[in-house]
Amino acid sequence: MQSDIQNRRIRERHDARTGWAFMAPFFIMFLLVFAVPICVAIYQSFFRQVASGGGLYGGGELTNQFVGLDNFAMVIASGDFWSGMGRVVVYAAFQIPIMIISALVLALVLDSFLIRRVGFFRLSYFLPFAIPGIVAAMVWLYIYTPELSPIVKFFDSLGIHVDFMAPGAPILASMANMTTWTYTGYNMLIFLAALQAVPHELYEAARLDGASSWQIVRQIKIPMVSGAALLAVLLSIIGTIQLFNEPAVMQSANGWMGYAYTPMMMAYSTMFGTISPGGDGPASAISIVMALVAGGLAVIYALLQRKTVR
């Protein structure tokens, strides 16, 4: 009896070591590309580059000086930061629902009996996500540029003036279209995986009870993918706060946008000194405040979603 217990403990220790050995590469990479950069950013956020040496204008070389929470105070008091945050929140308010609903509809269609070659359509919908974001943004910039766009020229021939890059709602809608085109297929796969995990016995039981196809979709399929919907929306909220590729490419053709049109653009421009005060410290502070705002919005949505489900 005692020998059996010892053998079982030996097997458990062996299984534990095997599990840790398989997990070690992921854990090491997680530390290198995620945990360590976050710690470095937090550390750098308490410093700022200042000119050392004498003279009327300081002179000398740039040195890192500990400034405490001054970088965070600068971000919180920055009107450009909160203006950019307001733009991405407005952007998310109409872009995320359109994208999530479109992804859910596509997933429901692929999970139905209407589509026979599911693999072909699944790959086709996902393909835009495989295109590098900066490349996709440049293609859409070509489509939006009045001098080059065949769409703009077509509307001009009808006597309708269309400006996809006008300040305000038009340029936000243009960027939302770019993001929706890219990420709808990605979110569709999340919904499709959740739908395929639903036991088909539920559908068969519902049909035996006289439920129609629409009732099955509304009362079984959609409620069963609520967890996937929560995941997709949370990822979308976090991604929207980090919006960069689309506005950065649009800014190259629309100088009026400035270098702080979104918080991520502000962090990037601060990092390279385009916005003053620049350097690693202020840019890290902007990134940390962005992360806190994104986390706060994600938590608020999760709590509201949980109350709605209850």
Results as ranks from 00 to 15, higher is better:
Ala107Val: 03
Val36Thr: 15
Gly60His: 06
Phe120Val: 15
Asn71Leu: 01
Gln49Asn: 14
Val105Gly: 07
Ala77Gly: 10
Ala93Gly: 13
Leu110Trp: 00
Trp82Arg: 03
Gln65Asp: 12
Pro37Thr: 12
Gly79Met: 05
Leu104Ser: 13
Ile115Leu: 08
Leu31Val: 14
Gly53Tyr: 12
Gly68Gln: 09
Ala103Ile: 08
Ile96Ser: 00
Ser78Trp: 06
Val118Thr: 14
Arg87Asp: 04
Ile38Tyr: 07
Leu62Ser: 11
Phe81Arg: 05
Val88Glu: 03
Gln49Thr: 10
Ile76Met: 10
Pro97Asp: 12
Ile38Pro: 07
Ile101Gln: 00
Arg117Val: 09
Phe72Cys: 03
Leu114Asn: 08
Phe47Asn: 03
Arg48Glu: 05
Val36Leu: 15
Ile38Ala: 03
Phe46Arg: 06
Gly86Cys: 09
Val89Gln: 04
Ala107Gly: 07
Arg117Phe: 09
Ala107Thr: 06
Val109Leu: 09
Asp70Ala: 15
Phe120Ile: 14
Gly55Ser: 11
Phe46Tyr: 09
Phe81His: 04
Val50Asp: 06
Val50Cys: 00
Phe81Lys: 02
Val33Thr: 10
Met99Tyr: 05
Leu56Tyr: 14
Val118Asp: 01
Met85Val: 11
Arg117Cys: 01
Ala93Tyr: 09
Val36Ile: 15
Ser83Thr: 15
Ala51Met: 12
Val118Met: 00
Ala41Tyr: 00
Ser102Lys: 01
Met74Lys: 03
Ile101Ala: 10
Leu106Trp: 03
Gly68Val: 00
Gly68Trp: 04
Gln65Ser: 13
Val36Phe: 11
Gly119Cys: 12
Arg122Val: 05
Ile38Arg: 01
Val36Arg: 11
Pro97Gln: 09
Phe34Pro: 08
Val36Gln: 13
Tyr43Leu: 04
Ile76Val: 15
Asp70Cys: 01
Ala51Val: 08
Phe113Ile: 09
Val75Cys: 00
Ile101Gly: 00
Trp82His: 06
Leu108Glu: 08
Gln65Ile: 08
Ile42Met: 15
Glu61Gly: 05
Arg117His: 12
Arg116Lys: 12
Gly86Gln: 06
Ile100Asn: 06
Gly86Arg: 07
Phe94Thr: 09
Leu106Lys: 00
Asn64Pro: 11
Phe120Asp: 04
Pro37Met: 11
Ile76Thr: 05
Glu61Pro: 11
Val109Arg: 02
Leu114Phe: 14
Arg48Cys: 01
Phe94Pro: 07
Val50Pro: 04
Gly79Ser: 12
Gly55Gln: 05
Phe72Pro: 02
Ala93Cys: 09
Val40Ile: 14
Phe121Leu: 13
Ile101Phe: 06
Val105Asn: 08
Gly55Asp: 08
Asp70Pro: 01
Ile42Thr: 08
Ile96Leu: 02
Gly68Lys: 00
Gly53Ala: 12
Met85Ile: 07
Val90Thr: 14
Phe47Trp: 11
Ala35Val: 15
Gln49His: 07
Leu56Gln: 13
Phe94Arg: 08
Thr63Tyr: 13
